[in-house]
């Protein structure tokens, strides 16, 4: 009885989005991500596609959906760079999986929580990305950790406002 009540609450909390939103929002995020740095070069420190992955994964609370979302968005990002395909795909599918798993257990509507999970998942994404680059592919790239931490802080702050905007495209019950 108690288990069925918990499942019912979980089902109620799961966010459902129209298909067009699910397709267009990631595309729009990727599009803005490749377009805005043309005019504002420093904008590339923000990772809008990663924030979209976190947002949908946390909202769906389904690890498989989060994994697929992260993998697809990451692969599209990889395709637009000069790096091998799969680096962002791997890191973002891991982020999507854990974001969805975390969304089941904590309240993700709170701005403070959103700030923390955005910071943590941005750092996780950077860590996995650099691990793949250095350890798996043995690419001779250098890392400025201070830059990466600043990047995580900025992403977490931007993520709070970005999630608030994305909440508006969510259908009301």
């Amino acid at each position: 009885m108690a288990m069925s009540a918990s499942l019912a609450r979980r089902e109620l909390d799961v966010q459902r989005y129209p298909l067009i939103v699910v397709v267009l929002v990631p595309l729009a995020a990727i599009f803005l991500q490749v377009l805005i740095p043309r005019f504002i070069p420093k904008f590339d420190i923000i990772d809008l596609p990663l924030l979209v992955t976190i947002y949908f994964s946390v909202g769906w609370r389904n690890p498989i959906a989060g994994t697929i979302t992260g993998a697809v968005i990451g692969l599209v990002q990889d395709a637009l760079t000069s790096r091998p395909l799969g680096i962002n795909g791997i890191s973002q599918c891991v982020v999507g999986f854990f974001a969805a798993s975390l969304g089941v257990k904590i309240d993700v509507e709170n701005p403070g929580t959103r700030l923390l999970i955005n910071f943590a998942f941005t750092l996780l994404n950077i860590g996995i990305y650099l691990f793949i680059m250095h350890r798996m592919l043995a690419f001779n790239v250098r890392t400025n950790w201070l830059h990466e931490v600043i990047k995580a802080v900025i992403n977490s702050i931007v993520g709070v406002f970005f999630f608030d905007i994305l909440d508006r495209v969510r259908p009301r019950d």
């Binding site: 690890p63 994994t67 799969g86 599918c93 999986f97 798993s101 592919l137």
Partner: peptide, 22 residues
């Protein structure tokens, strides 16, 4: 273990893809 198995499968495919590219 469905979720974790799915994650491992997706990761494995991408790692193989990376290895082939390199």
């Amino acid at each position: 273990y469905k979720n974790i198995l799915f994650l491992v499968a997706v990761l494995l495919v991408q790692v193989i893809g990376l290895a082939v590219q390199v």
